[in-house]
């Protein structure tokens, strides 16, 4: 794969998108939740629109990350992909444990939302401590 952008340029392109998206997310999250609570929205359609609007920037950031992985230098790409894959593996492992605990009636409802922060937490830790598992790269 040829490298279209250098490390710095790729990071700049990512930050230019991710920064505003994070701000939009924060505003939507706080604003949307406040709106939902105080206006006492009982129409499912409106609630759904609000929920989807808040999700949109999160998903957009994830897609921006994917683009960043493509554009950055090869070593950073491998490190980032590995951290992302590890976070995915840990999150899905948690999903299976919680899933079977639910199926066997040990736990009741679990807010699905929590898997988001779990994923980002593991991803963040994995990028910091890049060499947790495996030797090369």
């Amino acid at each position: 794969m040829s490298q279209r952008y250098g490390f710095k340029e790729a990071r700049k392109r990512y930050n230019r998108i991710a920064g505003p998206l994070m701000a939009v997310y924060a505003v939507l999250c706080l604003g949307g939740s406040a709106l939902w609570a105080f206006l006492d929205v009982d129409v499912k359609f409106t609630s759904a629109i609000l929920a989807l609007a808040i999700c949109a920037p999160v998903i957009a950031v994830l897609i921006a990350k994917l683009r960043y992985f493509e554009e950055t230098d090869e070593y950073t790409r491998l490190r980032q992909l590995r951290a992302f894959a590890l976070a995915g593996a840990v999150t899905v492992s948690a999903v299976f444990i919680v899933g079977f605990l639910q199926l066997f009636d040990v736990v009741g409802q679990v807010p699905v939302f929590l898997f988001g922060p779990l994923f980002f937490l593991v991803y963040g830790l994995a990028t910091c401590t890049g060499r947790w598992f495996g030797k090369t790269v």
């Binding site: 040829s2 250098g6 490390f7 950055t72 230098d73 070593y75 090369t136 790269v137």
Partner: peptide, 25 residues
């Protein structure tokens, strides 16, 4: 790293033998 358009960590990883660069690099 700046001259090659890669991150400083990449240069360090190659120098210490932790990472083998691709042919283009």
């Amino acid at each position: 790293a700046e001259r090659l358009g890669v991150s400083r960590q990449s240069v360090n990883a190659i120098e210490t033998g932790k990472y083998d660069p691709s042919l283009p690099l």
